[in-house]
């Protein structure tokens, strides 16, 4: 966490050279500033994953020396990795940010959604309801997220400013064209815009940026020993009770890390010895498996993501 603070309070050293342009970083900063200027109540959707942590750094850069002019919103499924929650609270605390947390458990208790059961039970889909309720509660008109177009084929079609109707729905066949860098954020009352500042980044771009900026991220991204079991060729965490495990699925200690941080119940680990950012970057450079290859939520059908997005999922 020192790194985050160090940059914010740094003494300004006069540099004589020309600023070198990192195009993706500059684009993201430009998008953040458009959000602050075009919307009344933006919010940054924060999952505790590396993409949303990168967003926080980019937002700091966009508005420095002013504070980030909007709160963070975390939809807590109750199935988060404990490391992520601990990290989230520390980050918010040290940067003096406003954090709003809304719980999927509350939506379940209120009878708005029904918990899934069975071997593949997950709260991944349920969180959409909690998110849409939070958007309505706070009247957010712009929700900034860390989704990237290279992650998944339906996301490849996503706009940078993506309009959602009153029901949070994505009309993928009727999207606003986005020309040059002009972002049209004009909306009706009740609508909101999902904003994706790192749309054009790849997984490797994010990791390279984390390395260059020395951004701290949760420990589960790095190789560690964990009790795990195998299912469908994927490695699952066995040390948390939210992940369903059948009796015949044997537990074994493996050295693993996580490439994406979704819910424990739908995020599989990969075997890895990469225990530093440098090693993680090197590993991704030669990896033959895509990042979402370990996300069971995408494997439900070929159009799983497109369907969830139509309903208001991120």
């Amino acid at each position: 966490m020192e790194t985050l603070l160090k940059d914010i309070g740094a003494t300004i050293n006069q540099e004589t050279q020309t600023l070198q342009v990192n195009e993706l970083e500059n684009e993201a900063i430009y998008i953040f500033r458009e959000v602050a200027a075009q919307f009344e109540r933006p919010v940054l959707l924060f999952s505790g994953g590396k993409d949303s942590i990168t967003l926080v750094r980019l937002a700091q850069k966009a508005f420095w020396p002013a504070k980030i002019p909007f709160p963070l919103l975390h939809i807590d499924t109750g199935h988060n990795f404990p490391e992520t929650i601990e990290f989230r609270d520390r980050l918010v605390d040290e940067l003096g940010l406003e954090l709003i947390v809304r719980h999927v458990q509350d939506s379940i208790n209120q009878g708005k959604v029904v918990e899934e059961t069975g071997k593949y039970a997950s709260r991944n889909i349920l969180q959409t309801t909690t998110l849409l309720d939070a958007i309505e509660e706070f009247k957010f008109d712009a929700c900034i997220g860390g989704a990237r177009r290279d992650e998944e084929k339906a996301r490849a079609k996503e706009r940078i400013f993506s309009v959602r109707d009153d029901f949070g729905q994505w009309d993928e066949k009727n999207q606003r064209p986005e020309l040059f860098d002009m972002l049209n954020g004009t909306i009706e009352l009740g609508q909101n815009v999902r904003v994706f500042p790192i749309s054009n980044w790849t997984e490797l771009d994010v990791w390279s940026y984390i390395l260059k900026e020395q951004i701290e991220i949760p420990s589960i991204y790095f190789a560690h020993k964990r009790h795990t079991f195998l299912r469908d060729g994927l490695i699952w965490s066995a040390q948390d009770e939210v992940v369903f495990r059948a009796k015949e699925e044997a537990v074994k200690e493996r050295t693993v890390r996580f490439r994406t941080v979704g819910d424990m119940s739908c995020t599989a680990a990969v075997e890895s010895d990469a225990d530093t950012i440098e090693k993680v970057v090197a590993e991704i450079r030669i990896s033959k498996i895509s990042e979402r290859g370990a996300r069971i939520d995408d494997k439900r059908s070929e159009a799983a993501m497109e369907k969830r997005k139509q309903q208001g999922y991120f």
Partner: peptide
């Protein structure tokens, strides 16, 4: 002055998101 984040620069070129 020209700032990019908390650093000052003498010059910035096209494509730079500066203050």
């Amino acid at each position: 002055s020209i700032y990019f984040y908390d650093k000052m620069f003498q010059e910035a070129k096209a494509g730079s998101s500066v203050t």
